[in-house]
Computed example of a mutant assay.
Amino acid sequence: MLSHSQAGTGRAQPMDAGGNMPLNSYGVLKGTVIDRRFASGANPHYQIHVVDDTIDYRIAVNVQSQDGSQVEYVVKSHFAHPLLRDLHELKPGFHPLESKPGGLGLDFIRGNLVDRTEFVPLPFSAPGPDNDLNEKLDHYVQRAMADETALLYAFGERWGPENGKKDKIFGFLPGNGIHDIHMNQGNDARFKKDDGVWQDGGLLIHFPRGDQWVAIFLKFQTQAWHTDDKTGHTLDIPVSGPPSDVAGGGGGLPTVEQPDGIVRIVAALVNDARTPERETVTLLNTSNRKIDLAGWSLADNAKSKMALTGELQPGGLTTVVVQAPMVLSNKGGLITLLNAEGLKVDGVSYTKQQVSNPGWTIVF
């Protein structure tokens, strides 16, 4: 993986109480796109020149891997999530973010931003103008350059300002920017020191005309999806219960080791017209075997959990009434399903707008 040391300052990183050394200077930059460069030669980054009211920044985005770890990507052309409301209120510039739930920090897993199965792997080849991700990024970046109202939000680790040193790509002074624009947890041993929760990178672009949000999320195939809630390190997953009847999860089907999607959150009633305090979540067993929900739980935006019981037959549905301490806010929120081992099985998000009509059920 080539992203963790391409543009950083080399400063020592603070160690947290758990012995983990997460990213230094994690945050989000809000600004206007004025230029870009394709990845080329030995540099596997697509470069974006962004300005706020007074400062220039370079955003270095991995679009290719040269060491066999393979970049995976998701592009969501109509992204919706409750965090967008608060992002919109930020002033232009770089904003340091705390790596904790309930804030603006990104966490692909805990923030229900993206499903693991949505990631598309890039082929292992040299970067260049024909690189698929180069082209996909450039489509939206060029559109942002042509729209004076468009704004880019880049999440990652800041480097600089590098006083007296020009930026090596765009030439502005001083050099300054954001990198690690990708998942920053579940790393292999080489980059384990960068692991942390609520510190993932990503790009969001807002086009106010039409109120369209575009989200671009990146990770590497060497990064694990299930990570420790405190350190972000890869979990040693305990295997219990009946093994999957699909060897290796053939066809992308869930396994005991990778349970993602074996039970899905398919609907939620957040704003009941008749009984405002009554909220429900509907679950679907997608598998061909019975699922015992003993030890499973649902969690809300604040990670407050509600225990589940009962069994789900193959293809079966169940609608559960939400009980305290779990709460589904009418301002938008998250719903996460965890199995008996504490692994995330499914997760969804909903916005304030989606629950603005009392009595209507949201379908995910």
Rank of each mutant, 00 (worst) to 15 (best):
Phe94Tyr: 15
Pro96Met: 08
Ser99Leu: 03
Pro101Gly: 10
Gly103Val: 10
Gly105Asp: 10
Gly105Asn: 11
Leu106Gly: 06
Leu106Asp: 07
Leu106Val: 09
Asp107Ser: 13
Gly111Asp: 01
Leu113Ser: 03
Thr117Phe: 09
Glu118Ile: 01
Glu118Val: 02
Leu122Met: 13
Phe124Lys: 00
Phe124Pro: 00
Ser125Arg: 15
Asn131Cys: 10
Leu133Ala: 02
Asn134Val: 07
Asn134Glu: 15
Glu135Ile: 13
Lys136Gly: 01
Lys136Pro: 01
Leu137Thr: 05
Ala144Gln: 09
Met145Gln: 15
Asp147Glu: 10
Glu148Arg: 15
Ala150Val: 07
Ala154Ile: 06
Asn163Glu: 09
Lys165Phe: 06
Lys166Cys: 02
Lys166Val: 06
Asp167Tyr: 01
Ile169Val: 14
Leu173Pro: 00
Pro174Tyr: 01
Gly175Ser: 15
Gly177Trp: 00
Gly177Lys: 04
Gly177His: 00
Gly177Tyr: 00
His179Cys: 08
Asp180Gly: 00
Asp180Tyr: 02
Asp180Thr: 13
His182Gln: 14
Gln185Cys: 13
Gly186Glu: 04
Asn187Arg: 05
Arg190Glu: 12
Asp194Arg: 04
Asp194Gln: 14
Asp194Phe: 15
Asp194Asn: 12
Gly196Gln: 09
Gln199Ser: 09
Gly201Phe: 03
Gly202Ser: 06
Leu203Thr: 06
Leu204Ile: 04
Leu204Ala: 04
Ile205Cys: 02
His206Ile: 00
Pro208Gln: 04
Asp211Leu: 06
Gln212Cys: 09
Ile216Thr: 05
Phe217Trp: 14
Leu218Asn: 10
Lys219Glu: 05
Ala224Tyr: 01
Trp225His: 05
His226Ser: 06
Thr227Cys: 09
